[in-house]
Amino acid sequence: MLSVRQIEVRYEGIAAVRGISFDLAAGECLALIGPNGAGKSSTLRAISGLARVSSGAIMFSGSDISGLRAHQIARLGIAHVPEGRHIFGPMTVEDNLLLGRQRMGDLSPSQGLEMVYDILPKLQERRGQQAGSLSGGEQQMVVIGRAIIGQPKLLMLDEPSMGLAPQIVDTVFELLGKLRSAGQTILLVEQNAELAMDFAQRCVVLGVGEVQLTGTSAELRSRQDIIDAYLGTF
């Protein structure tokens, strides 16, 4: 479904991503892991069009999307839950969800809302509340709801556990597990490598802008050298 080929991303001349490649099949769940500055977020930003790719290609459902603008990519069915959530704070929960309108395809707004409220009943209770006034965990639920309202082909999450209490992290990953079981294709960026390896079938380990290792979670656990070098001890 998604094939990232030798992409390079530069910020003001400095390469943050240097020739990263990986593939992701439909229904698969893949995690990008690695230390700070390894290029994980930049890779996601490149896929969703927020960052420009200076070379390489990003194939999505058979065509290269690396030249498209971010809103066009979003409408193709790639939902990106960015790092730091980026919630529309002054708007209500329901307005936040409805902004996914452009990506909803055949669903009517009310059908979309119904689908999200089915999975996240808590949001229905809070529908009229200002999104910025919610707790961090609830906000994370809103952004995930906002992402899945369009039934995306690919769901990308950047550090969904960041800044949340362990209990809340469990709830978030429980939700993601539900989506995974329902067949949602997921690309996860996670600094907490343990969490990521538990959740994903395969992992791509990044270090200083390059792929260090690609393999299943089990394979990765057997490579103490990689864990020591890039993932720290845990």
Partner: peptide, 24 residues
């Protein structure tokens, strides 16, 4: 209105608006 909300979204967070599929 949906259009008004989308404009407001651009104002609140331009990147997030792009990710919602809004043509900023």
């Amino acid at each position: 209105s949906a259009l008004g909300r989308e404009m407001l979204a651009c104002a609140i967070d331009r990147e997030a608006a792009y990710l919602m599929g809004i043509d900023v």
